[in-house]
Design a protein around this nucleic acid. Sequence first.
RNA 1: CGGGGCGUAGCUUAGCCUGGUAGAGCGCUACGUUCGGGACGUAGAGGUCGUGAGUUCGAAUCUCACCGCCCCGACCA
Length: 589
Amino acid sequence: MKRWSQFFIPTLKESPADAEIASHRLLVRAGLVRRLGGGLYTYLPLGLRAVHKITQLCREEMDGAGAIELWMPHLHPAELWAQGPRWAAAREIMFRADSAGDGRRPGREPEVVLGPTHEEIITPLVKAEISSYRDLPKNFYQIATKFRNEIRPRYGLMRAREFIMMDAYSFDTGDEGAVKSYFAMKEAYARFFRRLGVQAIAVEADTGVMGGSFSHEFMVPAEIGDDDVIYNEASGYAANREKATSALVPADLADAAPAGAVEKFATPGVTTIAQLAAEPHGVPAEQQFKTLVYIGDGRPFLVLLRGCDELEEAKLGALGFTLFRPATPEEIVPVLGARPGSLGAVKGTLRDPSALAGVFADHAIRLIGNGTTGANEDGFHLRHVNVARDLAITRFGDFRRVRPGEPDPRSGQPLQVRRGIEVGHIFKLGTKYSEKFGAVFTDDQKQTHPMVMGCYGIGISRALQAVIEQSHDADGIRWPWNCAPFQVLVCVLDPQLPEAMELAERLGTAAERAGADVLIDDRAERPGVKFKDADLIGIPLRLTIGGKGLKEGVIELKWRHAKDVVKLPLAEAEARVAAAVGEARAAAA
RNA sequence: CGGGGCGUAGCUUAGCCUGGUAGAGCGCUACGUUCGGGACGUAGAGGUCGUGAGUUCGAAUCUCACCGCCCCGACCA
């Protein structure tokens, strides 16, 4: 039981100017956090209590799923990362820390880095400690601080540079076991978010720099989310836009027959899809081939799309390059022979085809059949280009961005889109890290194999804010029972009356015995201030003790999410409060 | 890193265009009146006007540079 006057909850009437979204404003106004610098936040006592509630729930679900808690350093020797499979990509977001003073190697590679995630730490540990199939599977987790130099920290805790994360790593003897571990975590995640009191949906996701074979994200639907979720309610299909696909191209689509010889025609000044679609040329975007040039690990490659489609850049990750980026015009001309606007992939028109690492075509270009593309000669295009006959395609793939309304890959029903906040991510990693670090085990045939890994993350601090984003009203936060910093607020309107404070203690004790954390507002403030603050900090159950009520022989009980106030006769108050707490706990279990 | 915007008291901000005493509300301190939905009055404390240069007799105000923050894009839990 805490007394407000002895605690520290600095609430604000006005929102700080830098807080744009509701949850960020409420984090600050309700006295949960204060900003230190870009993407850096102090958790004030009330905010820390919410964090503890969330981590405890998370811990219970992880333990329940058989994961084992440990704690790894936040400072990582840079050599470990250099040994790992993704140093080049990961170092972009890692804070470097040269030991003390000027460091021993100023201007060169860092000696230590602040950990953005822990695959590079856990895998060598498991390699050193586990070598027999008898000791597998194992799943280790920690709940700790992560550091990522986000290019653009945003929205308070939503995208911070230092944040709290639960990260887990599973090690199995084979693929089957790894899949089992993966789905055990998927279920644990679902239970965790349900108990947290937040609606989070599992969607198929891109694996990104993490690598691995498949992955799900847990998304909290919210307008301010950074991700687009493509879904169909009826079929249950849901995927991050980066990963989402559609049944736009029929599986049994036959190659179109050529419609005539390839024909070059002059298109002076035409450098965009829209210009070619306009008069005098009048080639619809759906009949154009779009040719994009990227550089993958130093070598150029081409991506072909329909003129009307957009590239979903994340899908290029499937091509296996460690790093890729759009090519510059200076890089394009020597290879293709023309500048952007007149590019194409028609056999025989490329200046230096041997320089290419590949030509990757989106399936949807097969819908074009015969179309128009750049001639690799500034100011000229080619028509009657046939997909099968004329294009030098290394392989087809899914590279286009799905649009709402396209047919669901499962049911054919139209796909929809909504925004979401990514609060959790699970990956089936495979052997990417175990091979690199030599984390192998010996099986019962005395054969050694790399362990099959999975990794799992929950953004604890982000989940905290997602809860607020999803659960608030015009007056303030509406904490779900299980992650509320306190579950019961005893609002004493006349704390100078000894009998009022004594009653508050009794009710608070009754609520505590029933399993609630209790805060007593004993401040010498006017009632209006107390009620406003109570709504702002959003404690689920409010008990009000006032001089008036005491004379009538009642106290008041009010749920934060409800409008009505229930008057409880003093004689019944303790039992009714205990019962209310019991019901709330049961409902939130 | 590209594009846009903003830095004035702890917070929200006016003043800047058109250079000349830095103002208000909230919060804070003291006293009084109040006391069931962010009360009122009186008196106070609190400001290197982000930093540095420049123009000028004189700069919060004009110019330049730098720093910080916010928003939009690419990355992520």
